[in-house]
Write a protein that binds this DNA or RNA. Structure first.
Lengths: 243, 243
DNA sequence: CGACCGATTGATATGGATCAAAATTAGTGG
DNA sequence: CCACTAATTTTGATCCATATCAATCGGTCG
């Protein structure tokens, strides 16, 4: 049981808060049965009553909304350890679908909240998680609002890389989602994602190895190109000029 | 005192949860002194330690981040009754600036959390607020990711209108922010906002009256054009085809 | 009245979308 | 293991919505 729990958080490079929040809240799922979800299948649907929360134990999940005729927005990807539905009040505001083969656990919303209310530590962890979700959503708003295709893709890759999944010996990065998923997450088309990736490859920033792996050749440049490097030049300049 | 509190929530058209969340949490601010903030002045800065939460008692505030050289993203506008900084853990992730003359109150983060921890009702309200913030952020992600200029502007206006501020006799809507603010919130340029507005006016959807007022001529069409009308056609079609 | 600032309008440029193949890769059945 | 088919990705050609650059307009304030 404990092994299981730790396994879900094997990846390094998380903040202390994240680990704390994830760790303690994930204890609430340990009593639940593990459910396998095969790639492509839905875990919950937008509009349905949010009677459960889920934890991704293994695999990758996409959360998305459909807007108008066929336009899909992937608001987030969830990885091992992540909770699905923590920030919901009554209904699911997104559909959750397995990107890869997954294993998940579920708990009822009621029991989740009962447990959280019972423990200060869990409570803190829960608040912390909600705040992180908001922060992530804001980050994504910035990306969608002001970044060009290259910056978007570099941000995405850099973030994936910083998650440092187990498979990543040296600098080989697993990219479980397909091009369409990436496009729908970054607000681009599949063609633009492909072209941008080719361009990055030709500039020796990354080197695609098959559809689902990327060798990060130059992380420094990648970060630079992502547009949220701490080039304290620009940032401090602006900070000052605003006062 | 109580008058004050109610005044901040005079506008109708909010969900029950919103009212509840806002009402009870705003009690925490009543003991604090009212601080005037003149238009254009900052309330807090991105990067600073988030030692306080603020409540907007009167006026409108913009929350923004600066990305790269001079690109500004307004992640949200805050109105009377709204809290600023509820979803922050340690540092401010945005700068808050008065759009109009404002009056605000502040409480220390510590005392806020102490009080919230002490009351179940406050606690529920706080969670509720965080969830709403996340939902709003997701909504904005959809807008930035998949909507065109017209849909964005219509969404914005419709949302403003649904807030139904006091000045709104009949269908005259106050728009306190300038074109640049709107542009930076919608991920457009000032010119595109202006042109799109002109187009909407020529189609008799809205009628600008001065820089800061809009007469809503046809709310039905406005909602339709916003792209999140419940045209159960499309939606139900898609829901079905996905299963 | 003139200078200034925000908003509008106009002309042009462009990044990414769209439409259309071609090239890879993955699956399937023999 | 290989041939065949389907799906995904890449590449190419063209188009278009919005950005950019530039000029004008309308209100406001000294």
């Amino acid at each position: 049981m404990l092994m299981q729990k730790n396994q879900a958080f094997e990846h390094a490079e998380m903040t202390n808060e994240t680990i704390y929040a994830g760790r303690s809240l994930s204890a609430l799922f340990l009593a639940s049965a593990m459910e396998p979800v095969s790639a492509g299948r839905a875990i919950c649907w937008e509009g349905d009553e949010a009677n459960h929360l889920f934890q991704v134990v293994e695999g990758v999940v996409r959360l998305y909304r459909i807007v108008g005729e066929g336009r899909r927005v992937i608001t987030a990807f969830c990885f091992a350890g992540d909770l699905i539905g923590a920030s919901l009040q009554s209904d699911f505001l997104f559909t959750a679908e397995a990107v890869t083969e997954c294993r998940i656990r579920r708990v009822s919303r009621k029991s989740f909240h009962d447990e959280v209310a019972r423990s200060d530590a869990l409570h803190t962890a829960y608040i912390s998680l909600l705040c992180q979700e908001t922060a992530a959503a804001h980050e994504q708003m910035v990306l969608l609002s002001k970044k060009n295709a290259e910056e978007r893709l570099c941000s995405f890759i850099a973030k994936l890389a910083s998650r440092r999944n187990p498979q990543a010996r040296q600098s080989l990065l697993r990219v479980p989602m397909n091009r369409q998923d990436i496009a729908d997450h970054l607000g681009l088309t599949i063609e633009t994602v492909s072209r941008t990736l080719t361009k990055l490859a030709s500039r020796n920033v990354v080197a695609p190895e098959g559809r689902h792996d990327l060798r990060i050749v130059n992380l420094a440049v990648l970060t630079q190109l992502s547009g949220d490097a701490d080039d304290f030049f620009e940032k401090s300049c602006h900070r000052v000029s605003l006062h």
